[in-house]
Amino acid sequence: MSVTGNTAPRFTALGYLRAFITLLVVAHHAVLAYHPYAPPPTAMDAPSWLWTAFPVVDAHRFAGVDLFVGFNDAFFMALMFLLSGLFAWPSLRRKAAVPYVRGRLLRLGAPFLWAAALVAPLAYYPTYLQGGGEGVAGFVHAWLSLGAWPAGPAWFLWVLLVFDAIAALVYRLAPNAPDVIGQWLSLRAPLACFGVFALVASIAYVALALAVDPFQWAHAGPFFVQTSRVLLYACYFAVGVVLGASGVANGLLAEGGRLARRWIGWTVATPVAYLVLVVAFVMVVSNPHPSNMLVVFTDVAFVISGLVSSFAALAIFLRFATRPVRMFDSLSRDAFGIYLLHYPFVTWLQFALLGLAWPGAVKGMLVFVGAVTLSWGTVAVYRRVRTAHVRIAAYS
């Protein structure tokens, strides 16, 4: 199942999980303005680019939401890459490498450019206003003066497109490689698969996290990516490709399979793993000169926490979300559009609520509900207009 494609009925659980993660993304962005440790609002030309992560900052905070944000940050985008890789190999077998890449360029590249050129500026205009800017002309000048143009959440699309292109190249060079690894994994218990995945992912992440600032974003033009996580995301995508190559329905991710039957254990392990990460992180940030061993332990804890959360999410949805539900079908179908469009609704709603003396928790929930409703409604209207246009064209 690609994050941008339709989900066949037999993969209902994975489609619903994709939609759930999309809602988590919206919720994550909706509450950042009320994060207890959010930085003060700054002008767009300030040396710090923290405004790209916190476009609007409210004086009213949401106590405890930092735990929610940190929990999401450890796993949800990585899991999106895994879900996106699941059906890459079947698609490559069906289409061949060149047509596959061409299709992904249309499906991912075009929306990315559109989001970078239009959606992101709309989302960051409230940032400019809160930083003291005035007028559209002034914003355009400030935006073009940046030298790089953050694309907001759409960064995921261009990174996924690169991974897809690499997968196509591997398909041309070694078309059977993922099948062999996937079949080996499909015969192993979930805990054994977790162990192999954890080892590879930890090496991939720690290697970069020690070399660069874990919070640093590399960028060129509209192409942004969190530097320390590139290999980690590649790891998740590759695991998705391998699992998909051996057949999702009969492997580790089979609905009602071995992973699904052990959903309780993975669910219980999730807060435990996250608690270990939180404690380790607090120890690092509270120590002016943390030891290398403590830093490495924290990096590994980050990987383990994210991986446990990912396995738990997969297990829960594979166990319980196997029957189609009309509303969830609609949400799953429109998840890609919601992901693309939600950010301007989030920032403008946050900006509109700045003058109200309401608790940050109330504002955060209102922004979340409003952003989901408005972005989902926009996608639904677009679908209706497009369908009507096609029907008119057919009868003209």
Rank of each mutant, 00 (worst) to 15 (best):
Phe224Ser: 02
Leu144Ile: 03
Ala220Glu: 04
Ser309Cys: 15
Thr4Ser: 08
Ser286Tyr: 03
Val285Asn: 12
Arg333Pro: 01
Ala388Gly: 09
Ala165Asp: 02
Ala312Tyr: 08
Leu106Met: 15
Val248Tyr: 01
Leu105Trp: 05
Ala198Thr: 09
Leu50Gly: 14
Pro324Met: 15
Ala115Trp: 05
Ala78Cys: 11
Tyr236His: 10
Trp376Gln: 04
Ala254Gly: 09
Phe20Lys: 13
Ser186Cys: 07
Asp66Gln: 15
Leu191Ala: 15
Met365Arg: 04
Ile392Thr: 02
Asp299Pro: 03
Ser186Ala: 14
Trp155Lys: 10
Ser332Gly: 14
Val268Trp: 14
Gly337Ser: 04
Leu157Pro: 00
Leu122Gln: 02
Leu173Met: 11
Pro190Trp: 14
Val369Cys: 14
Ala38His: 03
Leu50Asn: 14
Val26Asp: 07
Asp329Phe: 05
Leu340Lys: 00
Leu353Ala: 06
Leu106Gln: 12
Ala115Arg: 08
His35Arg: 13
Phe215Trp: 14
Ala211Met: 13
Trp263Glu: 15
Thr227Leu: 15
Val56Phe: 02
Tyr274Arg: 07
Tyr124Glu: 00
Pro175Cys: 10
Ala313Gln: 06
Pro214Lys: 15
Arg172Ile: 06
Ser396Met: 00
Arg94Thr: 06
Phe139Arg: 02
Val282Pro: 02
Val346Pro: 01
Val362Arg: 06
Lys95Asn: 12
Thr42Phe: 01
Asn250Trp: 04
Val140Ile: 06
Val325Gln: 12
Ala154Lys: 01
Ala168Lys: 04
Pro150Ile: 04
Ala97Cys: 08
Val285Ala: 13
Val284Asn: 08
Ala167Gly: 06
Tyr100Gln: 05
Tyr128Thr: 05
Leu50Thr: 12
Leu275Pro: 02
Leu67Gly: 06
Lys95Pro: 00
Ala78Ile: 08
Ala260Pro: 10
Asn176Glu: 14
Pro288Asp: 13
Thr52Gln: 03
Leu173Ala: 13
Val248Cys: 03
Ala142Ile: 07
Phe297Pro: 03
Gly306Thr: 11
Arg384Leu: 00
Ile21Ser: 04
Leu314Asn: 09
Ile338Phe: 06
Trp155Pro: 02
Thr378Glu: 06
Val180Lys: 08
Ala249Arg: 10
Gly257Arg: 02
Ala142Cys: 09
Val276Lys: 06
Leu160Ile: 04
Ala335His: 06
Ala53Asp: 13
Val206Gly: 03
Gly195Asp: 13
Ala315Phe: 10
Ala151Thr: 04
Glu255Leu: 11
Ala192Ser: 12
Ala88Lys: 00
Tyr233Pro: 02
Phe351Glu: 00
Trp149Tyr: 11
Pro99Tyr: 02
Val65Gln: 11
Leu23His: 09
His141Ser: 09
Leu208Ala: 14
Val98Asp: 03
Val242Trp: 01
Ser202Arg: 08
Tyr233Ser: 09
Leu374Thr: 11
Trp266Leu: 14
Ile338Ala: 04
Arg18Pro: 03
Val136Trp: 12
Asp179Leu: 09
Ser310Ala: 15
Ile316Cys: 12
Gly221Val: 05
Ala43Asn: 06
Leu374Gly: 05
Gly85Trp: 05
Met77Val: 10
Trp348Asn: 01
Leu173Thr: 12
Val369Phe: 11
Ala177Gly: 01
Leu294Lys: 07
Val31Arg: 03
Phe81Ser: 03
